[in-house]
Design a protein around this nucleic acid. Sequence first.
DNA 1: TGTAAATGGATTATGTGTAATTTTAGTTGG
DNA 2: CCAACTAAAATTACACATAATCCATTTACA
Lengths: 229, 229
Amino acid sequence: MCNFSWVVRNMSASEYFKDFFQHENKVYAQILADIAQGIYVSGDRLVTTALAKRYCTSINPIREAIKQLEGEGFVTSQKNSGARVANFSHATMRDVFEILQLLEPYLFEWYIQRYTQDCLLKLNEVLHQMRSLAVDEHMKFRELDTEFHWLMYKHHYNKSAVQLWKKNKLILQALHGNIPISLARREHTIVEHEKILSDIVNKKPQDAVQALQQHINQGRQYWSKVLVQ
Amino acid sequence: MCNFSWVVRNMSASEYFKDFFQHENKVYAQILADIAQGIYVSGDRLVTTALAKRYCTSINPIREAIKQLEGEGFVTSQKNSGARVANFSHATMRDVFEILQLLEPYLFEWYIQRYTQDCLLKLNEVLHQMRSLAVDEHMKFRELDTEFHWLMYKHHYNKSAVQLWKKNKLILQALHGNIPISLARREHTIVEHEKILSDIVNKKPQDAVQALQQHINQGRQYWSKVLVQ
DNA sequence: TGTAAATGGATTATGTGTAATTTTAGTTGG
DNA sequence: CCAACTAAAATTACACATAATCCATTTACA
């Protein structure tokens, strides 16, 4: 059972997955990846002994990893009752989206003024990959969507804000889980990304920010319709 | 040495301190309070054995509390090298202020529409306390300043955003430490709070938001001048 | 006989002690 | 003054003991 290969298999070949989950603490990174990938879903118990067996270690490192995840808000725990994956509800999604709506324009405005030609090429490459994806590769599509944004924000000077963005994006990922994305939404996402990119290239920063805000709003509306209880 | 009474003595009589530091985990709350109060300052080593003695417990609970604080960004740790209070630099202050500048108007806008008469009275009471404070009670003044904002944000529906605000406010508190506030800045703070309050009472939401933004900006400018290296 | 309370066992969380590896600090010698 | 070595201290991980929680069965009572 002590085998990490299945995790590696699930890992995307893209850079962004590394940036997101790379962590000196293996156990921590594993649990977080498992939550983000929907292996543990909202409300699941995180039993220390079980996790210790799964990750081939003793209980203590597991407890510490869980405490750290608790500090980051991915896990909640009650005294003498252990830890559970945090309750990601419909209300949580609203909250997360609203925080993202504050953060993204802020991070983006810096990018517009400091982007490199090399980075624009990478964005284009991601867009190309999104277009040439098979219809059933929902997970991969969402990864590419996140990577598009990540490429723009990762070098921002405000590392707290970047980390905060990452965290909220991960929560969204966990919330959406394995729910497939409609082809229409996929098409719209690509078009919206294209609009943002072209506004940057054409030196229209105002329009680019607006396009980004609309993009986030569209995503928010789409998911709130899909995840309606 | 196993005595918490000195902590209780330092605790403010006001409500906000309770809200801020109350936590089911005593050790966690203690360490965080110690960081916020400047007992451990930026860069200080957090030696598990020493903390275990201080808080009359064994190493494991200490380690878990530290891990949680690490998850929240108050503590950083290197492998085999233990934990330290996070590096709160001048750049950190800029980052924190920028996040607060995003969050506060967002939280505030909801308050304007949902405030109660009772809450306004409390705000007034806090203002009164600020005015009638002795000139050397810097810490107490800062607590009251924070409480003023806290009263407006604490009931916001977006609990993640509120917690985020709290966290960043705590980092500021740790950064400012025991540095005294100038009397001029104290006077300005009170006037700015009065302006915000009167704009709310006079049903001028637009002006109130603007007053709040200015208030944050003023604080930012003041502290960046004071803490210039 | 049906329902509610109680009891017991199993599972799990929490806290402590200990051994091993690594780091740190102090000291000695060049 | 700097480098290398040594001893003390700290981190890490593990095994164990204790305490709390959960669940199913049994028991008591109406």
